[in-house]
Each structure stands twice: as C-alpha cells, then as structure tokens.
Amino acid sequence: MTAGAYIDAALRDVLPEGVPAFFTAVESAHWRGRGRGRIAVGRLRMFDGQPATVEVWSSGFCTGHRFTEMAGGAASYEGARWVRVADIEKAPPA
C-alpha cells in the first residue's frame, strides 16, 4: 500500500458513518522509517482549500494520527459541514 492510500484510508476510517472526509485530497505522501515503526507523512488539501500536514502510524490494532501543520486552524463538523473553529485548548496535565 502506498503512503497516500494508507493516509486516505486511515483518516476516513475514524469518521462516523455519513460524515464526509475533512480533506479533499492527499496531495503528496511518503513513508518515514522502516518496519513496524514507520510513519506515513502526507500533505493534505483540506475542505476549504487550505493545506495541512499529517502523520499517520499504526501500533498493534490501533491507528493514530496527528497534524504537524494545519493552515487555517482547527476544524469541526457542525451542522452537516466542516467549519474552522478557534483552536481547541489543551487541558493541563493532571
């Protein structure tokens, strides 16, 4: 599987049924590392045309992702559409 196909599948898989993807394209992607620890790094075109960079990895049966860059700020699915929202504040460590 290509890094781009892996990113596309992983990001769509986390969405509830009926919710469209928040990105319109994986514009470029590559694998970083080798073996089980490798990470797919991709450049996305978001729902509003802004670019974003994401890292996607697998750990056992779980898949994780994080955005390392997201022009335009955080996004939320509200009123049956994706919108930009004020950055979500992180909770302080317990």
Rank of each mutant, 00 (worst) to 15 (best):
A5F: 10
A5R: 10
A5W: 06
A5N: 14
A5G: 12
Y6V: 15
I7R: 00
A9D: 12
A9T: 14
A10K: 12
A10S: 14
A10V: 12
A10Y: 01
A10R: 09
L11A: 06
L11V: 03
L11P: 04
L11D: 04
R12G: 05
R12F: 03
R12I: 00
R12D: 04
D13M: 08
V14P: 00
V14C: 12
L15M: 00
L15G: 04
P16W: 09
P16Y: 01
P16I: 01
P16C: 01
E17Y: 08
E17T: 14
E17V: 14
E17P: 09
V19I: 14
V19Q: 15
P20E: 12
P20Q: 10
F22Y: 12
F22S: 03
F23I: 10
F23H: 00
T24Y: 08
T24C: 06
T24K: 07
T24A: 04
A25V: 08
A25E: 09
E27P: 06
E27C: 09
E27V: 15
E27D: 15
E27K: 15
S28N: 11
S28T: 13
S28W: 00
S28R: 12
S28H: 04
A29H: 07
A29I: 01
A29V: 07
A29W: 04
H30Q: 13
W31L: 13
W31R: 01
W31I: 10
R32V: 14
R32D: 11
R32T: 10
R32E: 10
G33W: 01
G35E: 03
R36D: 13
G37E: 08
G37T: 10
R38C: 06
R38H: 08
I39S: 10
I39A: 07
A40S: 02
A40V: 06
V41N: 03
V41T: 09
V41E: 11
G42P: 13
G42Y: 08
R43L: 14
R43P: 07
L44C: 04
L44Y: 00
L44V: 00
R45N: 02
R45T: 14
M46K: 13
F47N: 07
D48I: 07
D48H: 05
G49A: 06
G49K: 08
Q50K: 13
Q50C: 05
Q50A: 15
P51F: 03
P51W: 05
P51C: 05
